[in-house]
Amino acid sequence: MKRWVLGMRDAFSEVLYNIAKKDKRVMLVTSDTGAICHDKFRESLPHQYLNVGIAEQNMVGVAAGLALAGKLAYVYALIPFATMRCYEQIRVDLCCMGLTVTVVGVGAGYDYSTLGPTHHGTEDITLMRALPGMSIFSPSDSIMVEAIARLSYKLPGPKYIRLDRTGTPLIYRGIKENFTKGAAVLKRGADLCIIATGRMVYNALKVSDELAKHSVKATVVDLYRIEPLNEELILNAINKFDFIVTMEEHFLRGGIGTLINELLVKNGKRCLVKNFGIPDKFCRQYDGKREYLQALMGLDVKSVSDTLIRMIKK
């Protein structure tokens, strides 16, 4: 039972360690990040562990070279540094060449709630989604993280995995899901459909509980693979709804709200849509609790529930 309380990054590291033990091609490349969670990896598998120092451009470039030599490289850093500081290298070295390198970013949304916008992961989905061939995973709990870590080992091409630093409440305990489909319907209700990703899946489930108190029944979809989007599954899930809601701890511009809106337009579906995400501003507020910052941006359970109830009652 203990393993279920592991945080996302610990869960990921544990699985990667077990894979790397059996496959010498697997290499973990970090930029001076992830000290404790990778301790076992770097002590037991020193020849498969590489700390390039605080040099993310080189981290990705070196990983590209390793991949060209047949290695299966995982680059690991906090989200802003794993995605933005080295965006050029991800774009040209990994995506243009279609190399099998997995970019692991830690600290989705406001996970690093006391560290400010330099350490917030609020643009990564938009940026990674702009790159042809990049697969994007946004797991919602540690059980899924373990599965995605294993899937990433088998999947060729460039990949991005967006992790929370610490544990999120478990969503998939007791649920049979192999995480290959890209999205999972966690709850079924007839009045509206909430599509959420990452940490916001938990909030979406709580929102659905709140709505139920007002006799509003919500379907909740966990969109855990953002690219390539399983359009068929999503369209099937939202088909009968007149009201679709998206939730993400990420800027509204270019995130999963944008993605779903594009899907609706492309398929000529007319319905009411509400996108919850971070509005167009940097969060220069600080608190030990991530939920405090979420609330400031209207992403907490109460704000979302109140907004939805207001919209429904109109």
Binding site: L68, D93, M97
Partner: peptide
């Protein structure tokens, strides 16, 4: 060997290749 043209990328790729050769 590699897709290049964005200046500054090639030496990192080369270093990765050289490092892999050393490891293997």
């Amino acid at each position: 060997e590699a897709f290049t043209g964005s200046l500054g990328n090639g030496l990192s790729i080369a270093a990765g290749l050289a490092l892999a050769a050393k490891i293997d």
